[in-house]
Nucleic acid binder design. Sequence first.
DNA 1: CAAAAACCCTGTCGGC
DNA 2: TGCCGACAGGGTTTTT
Length: 308
Amino acid sequence: MPELPEVETVRDGLARHIVGRTVADVEVRRDYSVRRHEGGPLDFAGRLRGRRLDAVARRGKFLWLLLDAPGTELPDAALMAHLGMSGQLLVRGSAEDAGAAEPHPHLRVRLWLDGGGALDFVDQRTFGHLSVVELVPTPDGAPGGAGSPLPLIPEPAAHIGRDLLDPALDRDGLVARIRARRTGLKRALLDQTLASGVGNIYADEGLWRARLHYARPTETLRRAEVERALDGAAEVMREALAQGGTSFDALYVNVNGASGYFDRSLAVYGQEGRPCPRCGALVRRDTFMNRSSYTCPRCQPRPRNARW
DNA sequence: CAAAAACCCTGTCGGC
DNA sequence: TGCCGACAGGGTTTTT
C-alpha cells in the first residue's frame, strides 16, 4: 500500500539506479496497466523507445521520470507512474536477473534498458498504471515536487495539491481550505486535491498522534487542531521514510526488492483489539464505504456531531 | 459548485 | 472440497 514514504523510497532508488539510462525496448504484457495514455499501449511503447530517463520526481503518490527531448531546451514529456495498491518498480540488473525464462507472474510492463537490464512494473492488483504524458508549468513556479529540477508537473497530476513534505507547500492556505470544507476530517486528509500523499494508513496514524477523531467536522475545527492533524501525518511519514517505507504483506517492496519494516511501529492501523500504546484502551476498527478506520476510543473520542 | 457514492481490479482468507 | 462474501484501497467517474 504505497503512500508517500513508500513512493519516495522508490523515487530515490530509481534516481540512483536508472537515471541516465536509455530505453531500448518496451514490453507491455497487460494493456490495462497502460492507462490515461492517449494512443494506447503501442503509442506508449513508441514514445519511450530511444528516450533517455533524465530525472525522477514525485508529488504525493504520483511518480514521473523526465524524458530527454532532443533538440529542445526543456523536457516536455514524462513517463508517469502511479503504483496504486500493489504496484512495484523493480530494477533488474541483467536478463538473468529479470528471470528471462520465467518472469514474475504479475509483471505488467517491462522497459528494456540500453547496456542490459530492465525496469519492471509489477502489479498484482492492477490499480496502478503507467503512461507517457505532457508536462505543464506549475502555477506557483516552484519545482513540481521532490526530485524535480524544474517547475513542471505531469498534466494528469496537475490537479493535486503539494504534499505535506514539500517545502513549497502553502501551509496556512491548506489549513484555511480544510476548515472551509464541510466534511469529516479524515476525508479532508485523504482528499489529494487539498494535500497529496496521505493514504488510509498515515491518516489514521496521524489522527492518533493528534488525538483527533476521524469524523470531526472540518468546519468546527480550530486552526490548531488542523495543524496538529497535519503535523501528525507529516511526522509519521517522515519516520516511515527514515525507515524505508511501510510494508504489510510483502506486496510492497522498494526498488531493490527489499521490504520496508515500519509497520512494526504502527500505533493503531491494523491493530484492532490491541492496546493503545499511549493509554492501553483497546483499538477499535470502524468501516465506512469499504474502508477501515482505526482509533483509540479513549484518546480519540467520537464527536457527537460526527460527520460522514 | 461540493460532497458522497459507485466503480475499477486481483488475490487471500475465513465461514459455511 | 468448494463456493461466497469480506477485505485490501487510491483515483476517476458518476450521482446527488
